[in-house]
Design a protein around this nucleic acid. Structure first.
Lengths: 170, 170
DNA sequence: TAAACTAAGTCAATATGGCTGACATAAATA
DNA sequence: TATTTATGTCAGCCATATTGACTTAGTTTA
């Protein structure tokens, strides 16, 4: 009776993994949500969308708007509101591209870096606890499986992105 | 220079895991999103919120509204709109609780089951591919680490929930 | 060089999924 | 009986996303 709804053997483990991913992600994003809720900014509050921008710009200083759009997979109109707010409030600055002057290269300000740290600290703590408990082998295997969960045609791109060495500031 | 922004050793692996989780979840939820986009219902379209309800009611037939709220961690007003739509369109039915007549026990209809299958099929396929490639040991370790990513005080509850044996229909 | 394309920004309208607060009903319990 | 609990509902608000149309400036190409 336990397998009443399972289509093939192993489906129960698969379903459990699907639910675990849901709960893990739910708690994982709840950390920075709490930080943002406490953070009162002048022009409207900051949300998850701002967090994602802060994260990726912090990690990839000098990235273009187009690159950011590709990562977030949202429309430029959606990004516009968020990015405008972050720029207006001094978390992010833009520089015109030295090669291609149409591009706007994005950087965090010191204020932006501070927010990035505040947001990522609880998330890093969550993973650090995990990796310390599980050991290096399981941790490596965890990252490998996460990577293979990503659409096949984007894996190389993601690998390149996350392995990219940190560049210097503007 | 590679560790310029790292606070402690291992931070680079941690940051990579954080980004991988973001991308993995992004692609993971994109599967059912596509299914839902194709699914034209009479009174407004269905979204992720409906998917989550369909999933958990499908997995836990006879669950109460309170249990569902606890899992989703949203307000009852947020759930109300989604649940009302699913009931009105015949995906979900309610039964008054036999012990406690205030409760409304939730079940999927045949139509609801069909939608659940359509939504979960691509997600299951994604995980099946993964688990077949990685082998049982890595797969087990993956689930263990996902579980430990969840808030400590909720882990037992989640374990109980996902390990629960499938019950019979109303 | 003129035409075409590209990177980015903007305006407007709309959908979805959350939230708070207030209040209602019915059933269980102290 | 009085209170608490499970659920539902109304109203308004906010954050995040969408599509479509259009602009500006800079690059590329025919």
């Amino acid at each position: 009776m336990a397998d009443i709804n399972n289509k093939t053997p192993g489906d129960d483990e698969i379903r459990q993994a699907i639910e675990l991913l849901f709960f893990a992600y739910r708690d994982f994003v709840a950390d920075p949500d709490k930080v943002l809720a406490d953070y009162e900014s002048p022009k409207g509050s900051l949300g998850r969308a701002h967090h994602r921008v802060i994260h990726f710009v912090g990690r990839n200083p000098g990235m273009t708007v187009a690159e950011l759009l590709q990562i977030l997979q949202i429309t430029k109109q959606s990004l516009a509101r968020v990015l405008r707010q972050l720029i207006d409030e001094g978390f992010v600055v833009q520089e015109r591209g030295p090669e291609d002057a149409r591009q706007r290269l994005l950087y965090l300000t010191a204020k932006g870096e501070a927010l990035e740290t505040a947001l990522s600290t609880p998330q890093r703590a969550r993973f650090r606890r995990l990796f310390e408990k599980a050991g290096p082998e399981a941790s490596r295997s965890f990252r490998t499986l996460l990577l293979e969960l990503i659409n096949e045609d984007e894996r190389d791109q993601v690998l390149t992105l996350i392995a990219r060495k940190q560049q210097t500031s503007p």
